[in-house]
Design a protein around this nucleic acid. Sequence first.
RNA 1: GACGAAGUAGCACAAUGGUAGUGCACAAGAUUGUGGAUCUUGUGGUUGCGGGUUCGAGCCCCGUCUUCGUCCCCA
Length: 450
Amino acid sequence: MAISTKPPSGMRDFLPAELARRRYVIETIQQTYEKYGFVPVETPSIENLSTLLGKYGDEGDQLLFRILHRRDKLARALETPEVGEKDLADLGLRYDLTVPLARLIANNPELPKFFKRYQIQPVWRADRPGRGRFREFWQCDVDITGSKSLIAEAEVCSAVSEVLLNLGFSNFEIHLNHRQLLKCLIKAAGIALENEALTLVAVDKLDKIGIEGVEKELEQRGISAAQSRALLELIQRPCGLDEAGELQRLKQALSDNSEAITAIAQLETLTSLLDSSKAAGHYCIDASLARGLGYYTGPIFEIRSSDFSGSLGGGGRYDGLIGMFKGSEIPAVGFSIGFERLLLVLEEKGLFGQISCGPDIVICHFDDVADSAVIEAANSLRQHGVKVEIYPETPKLGKQIAYAESIGATWVAIMGASEAAEKVLSLKHLVSGEQHKLNYTDTAARILNN
RNA sequence: GACGAAGUAGCACAAUGGUAGUGCACAAGAUUGUGGAUCUUGUGGUUGCGGGUUCGAGCCCCGUCUUCGUCCCCA
């Protein structure tokens, strides 16, 4: 049997044309984030398992790619009686960029009090691949540590909104909710706090499976019909209610709960800040938004679009996470763009213009020219900033030109003994067919002005 | 992890249980310093893998692997 030439399931090779698009999007993201004062960091692909475990909830722990002990340690581990999963691995591939950031913050106390970092790197999850879903995929995170101000929330929401708008994509809404508010809603419905996690999972599907679907799922998980109905009553937004009205409604429903009132007041402040930001007109209050990750403590966000079923990104406040790595707590808030899904949507909506990759020009030549002269000509063009490929052999000219066209070059230079003697190139435009003899400098100028 | 569909040439797809084809792509050629169009010719497949039924299997049956959907969950 031949060895499979496919990358592992859920992982991909990127060919030049696709990579050019990916880089274009990444560049836009970087430029936008930097306008907000975010600075880049990178962290290792691999983290200690102890860093990763217990931060994402049970589901997250299941999806961690673990790395086996090496050499003798593995052999020893395998010999221990009743060896379990935990004994075999000590490292894992990072699951997101937030937990590594928390570790990095705890490990570098000299960083600025308000550290605004962005990070664009791959993460790994041992998930089953599907549409817009991979085992290796990139995330583009912005986070602000050190501040409890809602300006931090507003800034990250504004930054990701601006990224999407700069890429020409405006069909999105940032759904907003608050972890404390959710907790209070569940309590108000009479559901035990120990059932919070499973309740949230069911509630989060409201817009997907509908009211009956959620009721059914809650019932299956042992929540009484009266409780689930009470919860849905609270969470469901009446038709025609605007953002302020929805917040007002929640405030009235939970008026006896000071914790809930505080959370709602934060959302009120946040929405007013967002109205002055790039996220204006691109957010909504969604009391059913839950988000799976365990570490969120305050406002939570998620990017939704009718162009993609699922989330295009998400984030929130996590004031306790850094404290898990450090004695003292440091508040933080972040937002992550799901790069692969964004790319998918941009592609489907035709929002990529012409993104070129490959050389501007291929130098075709004959065997009556010294190879060294060809290299000299190529380097002369390159010095002017032209992307040049030399056809490495000397078959008949037609083949050389056909090749240049096949790789997407718009120009060819033809170089024979006569051109070499005059130090010129016969520059041919492959679309118009026009051809002129020009010296190297004029050739470069002509290509770059095109 | 659950369910469904599909695996045939590099790619896209055909083939009432009876000799595996078509298009695109690729290669060569139509007076050797000019590509795209047309034409001619040609290369290319143990039909995903392993069993079974049959005189005979790409087709039917079982298993297996892979891929793609939907669910679950997520970015």
